[in-house]
Simulated assay, not measured.
Amino acid sequence: MCGKPTQQATRPFCSQRCADIDLGRWFTGQYRIPGPPVDEENMEKDERNDER
């Protein structure tokens, strides 16, 4: 995150602060893993079937 050398205790980050920043970026959707488009209609049907 900040460019400082990594520390063994928080690898691959330099500090817990940088690790927390990275985790926050995943939670907010700033990082994404590309994949095929999601069909919202089919997802809703699958969720209803899972509830049974």
Rank of each mutant, 00 (worst) to 15 (best):
D39L: 12
T6H: 13
F27S: 00
W26Q: 01
N49S: 07
Q7I: 08
M43P: 08
I33M: 12
Q7Y: 03
D39F: 09
Q30N: 14
D22V: 00
T28F: 08
G35V: 05
R25E: 04
Q7A: 13
R52I: 03
C18L: 05
T28L: 14
D20M: 08
I33F: 13
D50I: 04
K4I: 00
C14T: 03
I21Q: 07
A9D: 14
R17T: 13
Q7N: 09
W26D: 00
N49A: 09
G29A: 08
G29V: 06
L23S: 06
R48I: 09
R17F: 08
R52Q: 04
C18H: 02
R48L: 11
G35T: 06
S15P: 07
M43Q: 15
G29H: 05
W26Y: 09
D39I: 09
P5C: 03
M1L: 06
P34N: 03
A19E: 10
R52H: 10
E40P: 06
D50K: 06
M43W: 10
L23N: 11
I33K: 14
T10Y: 09
F27W: 04
E47Q: 12
D50R: 08
P36R: 14
C14Y: 02
W26G: 01
I33Y: 14
D46C: 03
R17I: 09
F13Q: 01
N42R: 11
A19D: 09
G3P: 04
Q16C: 01
S15T: 10
